[in-house]
């Protein structure tokens, strides 16, 4: 199967998944007894946070592979994934903020979860800056790889922050040892949504990778020509 074919299949699957997620999240799932309709923001907020974690995990792994093996492909994957990760961290903060106002009463507060997430966002904005400003591509890639590896340390801190410290943000509902504290229809909707957003991540990553390759090809040809 060609890469172009993989990309279009991913695109179709993403479309189907997101449509199903929209239907389940907006129509099929019941509203929350306490929060009401606003709780439905969870079906966007949790998947975007998951994608951000996943994207930065990919940056971490591919940065190690790049430093170890030196193959440009590894670096391209890390770069593409970092871009998607930054977008999704931003979306997580945005959706969380929209959820926060009607439930907590504030758009933002400096609790440990929100503060460590803001730091996560800045670390990877720094990563992208490093990549676009260092003119020597392979040098920029090596610096960025180091930041991509070190920056990943913030992910477990973000995730554990609600258990380690007192926060306004609630504790995990799904990834907890005693089992999920979400009613079955809501959990099902959430899992479908997480799956759909994972497909969206893969789709965006593959498209970004494709662009990166075209870019490299153009550079190659302009050198030859």
């Amino acid at each position: 199967m060609t890469f172009a074919r993989v990309r279009s299949i991913l695109g179709i699957l993403t479309l189907v998944g997101l449509t199903a997620g929209l239907y389940l999240g907006l129509i099929w799932a019941p509203p929350d007894a306490y929060q009401g309709q606003v709780q439905r923001i969870m079906y966007v907020h949790v998947p975007t946070a998951w994608v951000a974690y996943l994207a930065f995990l990919v940056v971490f792994i591919f940065s190690i592979l790049y430093l170890w093996r030196g193959s440009e492909t590894f670096d391209q994957v890390a770069y593409a994934s970092a871009e998607v990760g930054v977008v999704f961290t931003g979306l997580t903060i945005l959706a969380g903020s929209i959820w926060g106002k009607p439930t907590w009463g504030v758009w933002w507060t400096w609790d440990a979860r929100l503060t460590t997430t803001a730091i996560l966002f800045l670390i990877y904005v720094g990563y992208l800056m490093l990549r676009s400003f260092v003119e020597d591509r392979s040098r920029g890639a090596r610096y960025a790889a180091v930041l991509g590896i070190v920056g990943f340390l913030d992910i477990p801190i973000v995730h554990k922050s609600v258990e380690w410290w007192r926060t306004l943000h609630q504790a995990p509902s799904v990834m907890r040892p005693e089992g999920a504290t979400v009613a079955p229809p809501m959990l099902f909707t959430l899992l479908v949504s997480v799956a759909a957003f994972t497909l969206l991540y893969l789709y965006l990553l593959s498209q970004r990778l494709h662009l990166e390759r075209l870019d490299a090809e153009i550079l190659e040809r302009s050198r030859e020509g």
Binding site: P30, P31, A33, Q35, G36, V106, A171, V182, A183, M186
Partner: peptide, 22 residues
Amino acid sequence: LIMAKHSEEYHPPAEGEKAPSP
């Protein structure tokens, strides 16, 4: 400034109970 802290539990309203209106 008051901030309401909600729990990590999510469930639909019980039979006969109404969810808060939007």
